[in-house]
Computed example of a mutant assay.
Amino acid sequence: MPLTLGLTGMDAATETAIKAAFADANPRLGNRWSLVPDSQADHVIVDMDSMYGPMSWLRLHAAGKTVIGLTNAPRTQADFRLPQPVDSAGVAALLQELATAAGEPLDLVAVDIPMSTPAPSDTPAPAGMTPAPVPQDPLPGEIVDQDEEAASPEQPAVPAPSAVAPPANVAPPEPAPAAEEAPTTLLGWLTSPQLQGRRRIVRGDVPLLIDADARTYHGPAQLKPLAGHFEGAVDAADLETVDEATWAGASAAAGAAQPLSRLVWFGALVSGGGQLAGGFAPDTRFQMLKWPQTEREYPKHFRIATVMMKGPATVAEIAEASGVPEADVTDFVNANLATGFADIERPPEPEPETSRASGLFGRLRGR
Score class of each variant (00 low, 15 high):
T339I: 11
P114A: 14
A12V: 12
V170G: 02
I143V: 15
V44H: 01
G279V: 07
L70Q: 10
G69Q: 05
H229D: 02
P299H: 08
P352E: 03
A212T: 05
R59V: 08
S56Y: 15
V329W: 05
V158C: 10
E353L: 15
V158R: 12
D147Q: 14
S251V: 08
I18G: 09
V206P: 04
I68Q: 11
A23D: 06
S152K: 14
A132L: 09
T117Y: 10
A252N: 08
G311V: 11
L70N: 09
A176V: 07
E317L: 09
P74L: 12
G359E: 11
D328K: 14
R365C: 03
T100P: 00
I68K: 12
Q96G: 14
T314S: 15
R356A: 14
F22L: 13
L223F: 11
G69F: 05
P172H: 09
P348C: 03
E244R: 15
E231H: 09
V333L: 03
K310Y: 01
L269C: 00
A151P: 01
R198P: 01
E181S: 13
P85A: 12
P347K: 01
E97D: 13
G249S: 10
R199T: 03
E15I: 01
Q287V: 08
M288Q: 12
M288R: 14
L98N: 05
G311Y: 03
G228I: 06
A256I: 12
M51I: 13
G228M: 05
G219S: 08
E142W: 15
L106S: 08
S192I: 00
Q222D: 15
V164L: 15
A99Q: 02
A23W: 01
E149M: 15
E181M: 05
G69S: 04
L5K: 02
M115V: 06
P183L: 02
T284P: 09
T330Y: 09
F286K: 11
A125H: 11
M115K: 13
G274Q: 02
R215I: 11
A23I: 04
P74M: 10
A157P: 01
G362Y: 13
P350A: 14
L58Y: 13
S261R: 14
S56V: 11
E154N: 10
P138M: 13
H229K: 02
P118K: 03
L260H: 08
T284C: 07
L289H: 10
L269V: 00
G53T: 03
A268Q: 09
A21T: 04
F361T: 14
T191N: 10
R199H: 11
F302K: 08
L35T: 10
D211I: 06
G9V: 07
L94K: 10
E149N: 06
T123E: 03
L208W: 05
P153L: 04
T354K: 09
I344E: 01
G359F: 06
A171L: 13
L364S: 07
R346A: 14
M1A: 13
G278Q: 02
A21Y: 01
G90C: 03
V111A: 06
D122E: 12
F332I: 02
R28T: 12
A257N: 02
P282L: 06
L186G: 07
D79Q: 09
V109D: 05
P348A: 12
I304M: 14
G273C: 11
V202W: 01
F280V: 01
S355R: 15
W247P: 00
P120M: 05
T330N: 06
D238E: 13
E180L: 05
G323L: 04
T314F: 01
S162M: 08
L29K: 08
G366M: 11
Q293E: 14
L82G: 09
